[in-house]
Amino acid sequence: MGLVCRSVEEAGIATTYIATGRDLTIQVKPPRSLFLNFPMGNNFGEPSNQGQQTAILRRALEMVEEVELGGTLEDWPESWPAPVTYFTGRKSE
């Protein structure tokens, strides 16, 4: 996805990347990233928490207006209410 953002950006369309993997994001370096130390799949936060979802989306969009250097990563200040652990995957039956 980081590669997609980079190519889309090179084609003249601005992108904003809402990331839950900080080290992966730093490596691939999308043009603008908002990192949340949340579980993968909770990029916009908790279910039914409309205020949180909107705040994250708004911040990611504001970055499109504000960021002046490609590869900028911003850390979201809130932490997840439970320990964030690596999901080892479910094999489908």
């Binding site: 691939v28 370096k29 999308p30 603008r32 969009l61 207006e65």
Partner: peptide, 17 residues
């Protein structure tokens, strides 16, 4: 084989959000 980039492109929007 991870892609490791040192720089990134940037396109500024030319109108308000």
């Amino acid at each position: 084989k991870w892609t490791i980039n040192e720089t990134a492109p940037l396109t500024r929007i030319t109108k308000p959000l």
